[in-house]
Structures are given as C-alpha cells and as structure tokens.
C-alpha cells in the first residue's frame, strides 16, 4: 500500500491577518507557520494509523512550496511520513498546485491520496477534487472515517444535515476532516529520525494557472457592542426584533 499525503504550509490559527503592498500580499511578519491542521491532524495521522495496522505501507508526503516550507515538512516526517517530495514552486492557484501534485502522483503510483478538507488560509477545498479529476480517480470529499479492506475503501462523508457511508475501490482520492483521526505530537525518536529521512526537491512541471489573487480586504470593523442589562432581557429581544430585524 502506497499513500500520498498532501500537506500545505499555513499561518498558525492565532496569526494576525494583515496585508501589505497596497493589500496585495499577506503580511508574513511575525507569523508562525504550521502544517495545515486538516492535512496534519486528519489526513496524515490517518495514514500513519493505516501504516501501524499494515507495516508494509509506505507514506509519501507532497507539498508545493518554496524552501521555507522545509520545517513543516520535517515535522510531518517526524510524525510518521517516510519520504517527502517538495515541488519547488510558489502559487496560490489551486489548479496549478493540483497539476503538480497529480504529476507527482502519476510517477509514484499511489493507492490512496489524502488531503485535508481545506487549507485554513485560502479555504478553497479544491485540491483533492482537482487531483482526482486529473488522475481520473474517484473522489470522496469531507470524509470523517476511512477503513480499508484489501483494495476496497469504506468511508463516511459529511452531507448537509447528516452523513452517508459509501464504498469505492482503490485507487482513490479522499479529503479528510474531523473524526478521521486524532491529532498527535511527534516524539523525540520521530524528530531524530526525520532529520535523515529523504526530502526530495523537484522542479514544477509546466501547468496553467486559472486564477490570480488581485488583492485582499479586511472586514469592516464592528461598531462596538451594545450591552443590555441582564435584568432586562426584553430589551435585547426588542433590539433584535426592531433594530437588527434578526428575529
């Protein structure tokens, strides 16, 4: 069994979101970078669990980023990836990134490709579906459970107001979300081992970018909270009804 886990470098969840260069660039000053939580907590850890159940499993990691992503790749290797491939390109276009991952996937011949359900920066939720289309493989989005039996996968995916259980044969692309696995922290042995695990840097293949980021906006600041006396809850209901027209 060969598994490819797609990881992305994102700002920490508590990072201050600000922009520079006339609101065209994300302000990276002072930002801590992490592995996108969905990629790490759910996609990668589930892959590690599958390897724990079947020691012959190989886990490869792929990311499309510059060298500044190497620390987060090392962390993913410390958690339990076997080998990492970094496609040396910086892009904010999902199709360009998906094209690079699809190319790595074609060369590696993977049984299963896992991504997080979305990145916490661009919230596109697009890479998994695009990679699946480029590889002509089935795609299960927003999966909260994944079990394997031979070449058959059984998954639980989120739908509006509930969930559904479905089955598909490998090879398969899955986007993972909460429920799939529990977050782990790397242990010392993993951190030591990660130093010598292969991190291969490859140059990107030619691919189109379909979109560009023209700029960013921050939401308008709130006018400030209107506090209502806890003894006068009727006043809150009146405000919500008459002023905010929300109820």
């Amino acid at each position: 069994m060969k598994i490819l886990v797609c990881i992305s470098k994102t700002p920490d969840t508590t990072a201050k979101i600000a922009f520079t260069d006339n609101n065209t660039k994300f302000d990276e000053s002072g930002v801590q970078w992490i592995i996108n939580p969905y990629d790490e907590w759910y996609a990668l850890v589930r892959a590690i669990e599958l390897k724990e159940a079947d020691a012959s499993t190989v886990i490869n990691l792929v990311t499309v980023a510059g060298a500044d992503a190497d620390p987060i790749i090392r962390k993913a290797l410390a958690l339990g990836g076997d080998e990492a491939i970094r496609v040396n390109a910086n892009s904010h276009d999902s199709f360009y990134i998906a094209s690079q991952i699809a190319d790595v996937a074609k060369q590696g011949g993977y049984d299963l490709i896992l991504t997080g359900k979305e990145t916490i920066d661009y919230n596109g939720s697009s890479i998994g579906g695009m990679v699946a289309e480029l590889l002509d493989q089935p795609f299960i989005s927003l999966a909260a459970k994944l079990e394997l039996a031979g070449t058959k996968a059984t998954l639980t995916r989120e739908i509006e107001g509930g969930e559904e259980v479905c089955e598909a044969d490998l090879p398969l692309v899955v986007s993972a979300q909460k429920g799939m696995a529990e977050a782990r922290i790397p242990n010392m042995r993993g951190i030591m081992a990660a130093r010598t695990k292969p991190l291969k840097v490859v140059e990107p293949v030619a691919a189109d970018s379909l979109t560009t980021v023209a700029g960013f906006d921050l939401p308008p600041a709130k006018a400030g909270v209107k506090l209502v006396d806890p003894e006068n809850v009727d006043e809150l209901v009146r405000l919500l009804h008459e002023e905010a027209k929300a109820i």
Partner: peptide, 18 residues
C-alpha cells in the same frame, strides 16, 4: 465542494470557491 473542483479541472475553468 465535491463537484466544482472536478469540473474546474475537467473544463480548465477557473474556480472561485466561497
């Protein structure tokens, strides 16, 4: 979220999600 990215890659049509 399941369909639009696939269609985007299939038609090479730029996608704005969200």
């Amino acid at each position: 979220k399941a369909i639009a990215p696939r269609l985007s890659a299939r038609m090479k049509a730029g996608l704005v999600a969200g």
